[in-house]
Each structure stands twice: as structure tokens, then as C-alpha cells.
């Protein structure tokens, strides 16, 4: 069989920490090996979930923009929101998902500033929705602790 990438990375970490690290004399390089092991484990996690996180993020951002476009009083902003919501990824490569994610996040920042400056009930509720999106996005990307 062809071992999955995340499995290879996780096992690589185990080899580094349990077999190679104890054989290293320099405490500086021991530290470096330990850190590389942790980074391999994080890379394994990212390999498995990275695309899903970005696709979900981008879909939720588009939905937010379309919902806001219906309510914001600033016509130019509403147009920009609909334009941003129409941006599509050319592929599912991570770099392309990130490129679109960056474009959408730039638009998110403008919308967030606009909503914060409004004092309507809708704006307060919508700000909460935007913060909830950010919290969900970060939760999806959360990394396990180190040395626990």
C-alpha cells in the first residue's frame, strides 16, 4: 500500500522524538529536533483538514457577504460584497484556496468596520454573526497544545 501522507508525517515525528533525539548530544540540536517533531505533527493535521477548513471558510464568508449586501445602506459596499461573494476558486489547490480566502478576508475587514460603525439592532446582531464566524474559523484551525 501507499501510506497516507499524514501517517508518514506522524510516524516521522515519532522516529525523531523517540529514536533520533536521544542520540543527539547537543542540547541545542535536541531542542531543534523536538520542535521539528512538533511541526511534523501539525503538518500532518493540516494535510488532513486544510482543504476542508478553507472551503468551509470561503463558503461561510460568501454567505455572510450576500446576507449583508441585502441590508447595508452603503450601495457601493453592497456591490463590492456581491462581487466578492461571486469569486470562485480556480482549483482546490491549497494555494488557490488561500488566495481566494485572502481576497474574502480583505472584504470581511471592510464589512466588519462598517458594521461596527452602525448603531442599529441589525448591525449589533450582524457583528455578533461576524465574530461567531471568526471564532468558528479559528476553532477549525485550532492546534493541539505542546507538552501536555
Amino acid at each position: 500500500m501507499r501510506p497516507p501522507v499524514d501517517f508518514v508525517l506522524q510516524e516521522g515525528k515519532q522516529t525523531l522524538l523517540t529514536q533520533i533525539l536521544p542520540a543527539i548530544e547537543s542540547s541545542h540540536f535536541q531542542g531543534s529536533i523536538y520542535v521539528i517533531g512538533i511541526l511534523l505533527a501539525y503538518a500532518a493535521l493540516e494535510y488532513e483538514r486544510g482543504a476542508d477548513i478553507r472551503v468551509t471558510d470561503n463558503a461561510e464568508l460568501r454567505a455572510l457577504f450576500l446576507a449583508a449586501a441585502e441590508r447595508v445602506a452603503d450601495v457601493a459596499l453592497a456591490i463590492r460584497l456581491r462581487q466578492a461573494a461571486a469569486i470562485r476558486e480556480a482549483s482546490l489547490r491549497m494555494s488557490e484556496l488561500d488566495r481566494v480566502n485572502d481576497l474574502l478576508k480583505s472584504q470581511f475587514i471592510e464589512l466588519h468596520e462598517h458594521v461596527e460603525a452602525c448603531s442599529t439592532d441589525w448591525a449589533l446582531d450582524f457583528e455578533r454573526r461576524m465574530l461567531d464566524f471568526l471564532a468558528s474559523s479559528l476553532a477549525r484551525r485550532a492546534l493541539p497544545g505542546i507538552g501536555t
Binding site: 531543534s32 512538533i38 511541526l39 479559528l138 476553532a139 484551525r141 485550532a142 492546534l143 505542546i146
Partner: peptide, 17 residues
């Protein structure tokens, strides 16, 4: 130095949350 990546990934994740 690989130590440069740990704050960028791990600490950044914690602080943003």
C-alpha cells in the same frame, strides 16, 4: 531555525483565539 515556526503556528493560534 525551526523554533521560529512554533510561535507563528502554535502561539499565533492561541492568541488569535
Amino acid at each position: 531555525d525551526p523554533i521560529m515556526v512554533v510561535p507563528a503556528w502554535w502561539a499565533g493560534d492561541r492568541h488569535e483565539r
